[in-house]
Design a protein around this nucleic acid. Structure first.
Lengths: 125, 125
DNA sequence: TCAATATTCAACCAATGGGTTGACTCTTGG
DNA sequence: CCAAGAGTCAACCCATTGGTTGAATATTGA
């Protein structure tokens, strides 16, 4: 039953895997390549100055993050972009959007003005 | 002079550091806490079942990714959210937005034009 | 002045990551 | 049938990570 525990605990937060996958420039370039359409493992690995085995590990990391799906056809493996986890990550970051769109400062100013008890004249909010 | 090389090369892509920082649930929760306003190191560390030193390391990781700025005031260190790198990450992910919004025609046009001028012969770099 | 507070630092540890190489499996085409 | 092709697997290496503990550094308040 330890095996089950292990399997369950291993799956913690999908965002962990997604952000971890995105933290490597090789893997980001692979995703970008896949944005142009499906690619075999070999062609995905081509642009990189590393062994095929190393590239294969990167692809597996992308699969673990569910960013890539693989279809085995004969002796070639075809990889496709799986966008859902990217959407999750994008959505997670979207929470912080107000911090860089400048709306925050406006909000802060409003809150500060509202908070100050010395101003007791014309501000109703 | 090797030191300089090291320092320069170490700074590779800011997105590496940002996504790596975001790949840890502790650090994501810290950011979320900071979204509610500035926090001292101690208060940031409080919710976590780990030593203060460990939490301090996490905060340092956030600083290295420029996601957090620290102001030392007396003996307390005050941390603030620094949203710019989150915006970069959000923008990077935005490139893939069309994959999950179902608008694939624009995608094809972009990729044919921008990304792959050389698919299978001219690319040796 | 002195003890408590806030935090970092250094050393250490186990686990993970990213890379290598060489052997292995499976498919395919001649 | 058999060699070349596409990929994985396993073992290994070394650097990094995430955590620990104990000591060190400032700062503060009494």
């Amino acid at each position: 039953m330890e095996i089950l525990n292990h399997m369950v605990e291993e799956c913690s937060d999908p965002l962990d895997m997604v952000f971890h996958a995105l933290a490597d420039p090789t893997r980001r370039r692979m995703l970008h390549a896949l944005a142009g359409g499906e690619q075999t493992v070999g062609r995905l690995a081509e642009p990189f100055a590393m062994s095929l085995a190393a590239a294969s590990k990167h692809i597996k990391a992308l699969e673990r993050a569910r960013l890539v799906r693989r279809e085995v056809r004969g002796r070639t493996h075809i990889c496709r972009l799986e966008p859902a986890p990217l959407a999750s990550a994008h959505e997670w970051l979207g929470f912080y959007e107000r911090f860089w769109t400048g709306r925050l400062e406006i909000l802060e100013r409003l809150l500060r003005a509202e908070q100050t008890p010395e101003i007791h004249d014309g501000d109703r909010a």
